[in-house]
Design a protein around this nucleic acid. Sequence first.
DNA 1: CAAGAGATCATCT
DNA 2: GATGATCTCTTGA
Length: 196
Amino acid sequence: MTSEISILNRSFFERDTKKVAQDLLGKFLVRRIGKNLFSGIIVETEAYIGPHDLACHASKGKTERTEVMFGSAGIWYVYMIYGMYYCLNVVTERKDYPSAVLIRALEPDSDLQFTTYNLRLMNGPGKLCRALRIDKKINRTSAMAKNSKLYFEDRGIKISKSRIVKAKRIGVDYAGKWKDKPLRFYIKGNKFISKI
DNA sequence: CAAGAGATCATCT
DNA sequence: GATGATCTCTTGA
C-alpha cells in the first residue's frame, strides 16, 4: 500500500463545518513562497457555523469583510485581528451559508525548512500566519487551484475519533449561547496546540 | 506558573 | 468611537 498524496478539493470543504474542522486534523497545510515549500500538520481547528453562530463574523450580516464566507467552499478567508495578527480560515458548506474553519495551530513538518523549528512556532492562529507569511493577499483566493500559494494536502494520515478532543472555542466569550459550544478540535496530547 | 495590561488598526456603528 | 476568532511582556506568588 502506498499512501497517495492529494490536494483537498471542493467536495471536501462543501460539507458540514464540524466535519471539515475535524477532518482537517492530520492534513498538511502547504505554503509556497517563491520556489520554497513550507508545510505543517494541522493539529488544532475551530468551526464557525452560519448566520446564527454569534461568534461567527458573518452573524452580523454580509459586509465587505464577511462576504467571502457567503461564497462557495474552498476559498481562503483571512482577516486582521487586534491590529497586529492575521487569522486564516477556509470557507465551508454551500454558497450563501456563511461558515468557515479557523486553522489554529500547526506542527512544523519534519522537512525542517523553517529556520526556527520549535514548539511555539505555529501554536496559535496569529503565529502560524506570521510564520508562513500569510496576509490579506491570500484573502478570497482559492485553496484548490493548481497554482495556489497556499493549499491542503492529504498525505494519508488519519486521526481517529478517539484522538480528537472537543472543547469550547478560544476568545469568544462575547458570543452568548454560542460561547461554550464544543467547536474547537485538537489532537489529543499533541505538543503544538495553542492551549490545553 | 498565573494574571493583567498593552500593542495597534481594520471594521463596523 | 468601540471592539476584537491574539500575542508578548511584566509582575508577583
